[in-house]
Nucleic acid binder design. Structure first.
Lengths: 154, 154
DNA sequence: TAATTTGGTTTCTTAAAGCAACCTTATTAA
DNA sequence: TTAATAAGGTTGCTTTAAGAAACCAAATTA
């Protein structure tokens, strides 16, 4: 693969993708949000090779997305739990799932049915909103000069 | 790499990641949202190898995220423009950028400063919201049985 | 005490990423 | 009018990561 790293990129999306932008990491986070915590459970649910899972869990822990908790008192039993940073990926994951449900629905699979625990009502589509809460499309926004990526500035 | 494909996965996040979940695709979409349309511009802005860029653009076109437009009348000049499906990734990209700005801010780089074109006011944080528009954390929601991923059902 | 589970590590193979060179068709410059 | 450059690729080679399978040690369970 010889992947390019983006650790030092001036773009925060690139840096974010460096942490969770590979094939597995975001799926691991997703399953962690579904409630998975144990190594073997991730392995079975995702169908991921153990060495890759090791690597990804370690990387996610290093990046502060998960933390490794020693359970079972004297070693050899661990749980991987989302940190606040990891839980903060909630809108990203849900937005991605809603996009997938909309544009590549599985014929036999129901779309995301995420509900407010308090009221039982389904959640809204994740959207970019203006200060008044109105949804904005990409055509409705602009970015001041200083927010554009490097190469576009000169 | 020998990557596992998720085309047939029952999880729409996995299928979404199959289309835009690699290292480059989402960055290409991001730059397309910033206004980039030409092959050479993507190449220079992203610092991506030409063959990889070719492959990714072609894949994004195949998947209906971009469309290739013939400009310059008689061939050899093209533009890659976002489709509606591509533009629909707006909340995903913005949520990811906001996450990156929050958790891995670049010391010298300003955070995302995206503004409503109509009012000039900054956009809100992208969040999952209940039916009344109130932000929900992952702890505030639940998923009915039929929305859980395969492996958790049995 | 033996078998199994958990959470790994090691080795090997395969395939993708990245680099550089090359190529064709237009356009621009001399 | 010819030469140089730009756009948009393609090809071939090298490096490196992904994936499969085997192996392993500590702890738990039978």
């Amino acid at each position: 693969m010889a992947r390019k790293r983006f650790d030092d990129s001036s773009c925060s999306v690139a840096r974010a993708l460096n942490e969770v932008g590979d094939w597995w990491s975001l799926l691991i986070v997703l399953h962690a949000m579904y409630g998975t915590r144990r190594f073997v459970d991730f392995q079975q649910e995702l169908g991921i090779a153990k060495n890759i899972l090791c690597d990804r869990l370690g990387r996610l822990v290093d990046n502060g997305v998960l933390r490794k908790v020693d359970v079972g008192e004297h070693g050899s039993r661990f749980e991987y739990r989302l940190t606040e940073k990891g839980r903060d990926l909630f809108p990203v994951v849900i937005a991605l799932r809603q996009w997938g449900d909309k544009w590549n629905p599985a014929p036999e699979q129901p779309a995301l049915n995420l509900r407010d625990r308090a009221t039982g009502r389904p959640v809204q589509m994740v959207q970019v909103r203006d200060a008044d809460g109105q949804p904005l499309s990409i055509r409705d926004v602009f970015m001041p000069e200083d927010s554009l990526p490097e190469a576009k500035k000169g």
